[in-house]
Amino acid sequence: MDNIRYLRGWEKLKEIDGEQGERVIASLSDIAPDFAKLLIEFPFGDIYSRPGLDLKSREIAVVAALTALGNAAPQLKVHIHGALNVGCSRTEVVEVIMQMAVYAGFPAALNGLFAAKEVFADRDAKKNAPEK
Rank of each mutant, 00 (worst) to 15 (best):
D2Y: 10
D2Q: 14
R5K: 15
R5G: 00
Y6W: 13
L7G: 02
R8E: 13
R8Q: 15
W10F: 10
E11R: 14
K12N: 12
L13P: 00
K14G: 00
I16T: 12
D17L: 15
D17S: 15
G18P: 07
Q20Y: 12
Q20K: 14
E22K: 13
I25K: 11
I25V: 15
A26Q: 15
S29Q: 13
A32W: 05
A32E: 11
P33L: 09
D34T: 11
F35S: 08
A36L: 09
A36R: 09
A36D: 11
L39P: 00
E41D: 15
F42A: 09
P43G: 08
P43E: 08
D46E: 15
Y48H: 14
S49K: 03
G52R: 09
D54F: 06
D54W: 05
K56A: 09
K56M: 03
R58S: 04
R58N: 03
R58Q: 11
A61N: 10
V63Y: 00
V63A: 01
A65N: 05
T67L: 02
T67F: 09
A68P: 02
A68S: 13
L69Y: 12
N71Q: 11
A73L: 12
Q75K: 11
L76V: 09
L76D: 01
L76H: 09
V78C: 11
H79G: 08
H81Y: 12
G82F: 03
V86I: 06
G87C: 07
C88L: 15
S89A: 07
V94D: 07
V94T: 12
E95Q: 13
V96Q: 11
V96K: 06
M98K: 11
M98E: 06
A101E: 05
V102G: 02
Y103E: 09
Y103L: 11
F106D: 01
A108P: 04
N111E: 15
G112D: 07
G112M: 07
E118W: 04
F120G: 03
R123V: 13
A125I: 10
K126Q: 13
K126D: 12
K127Q: 14
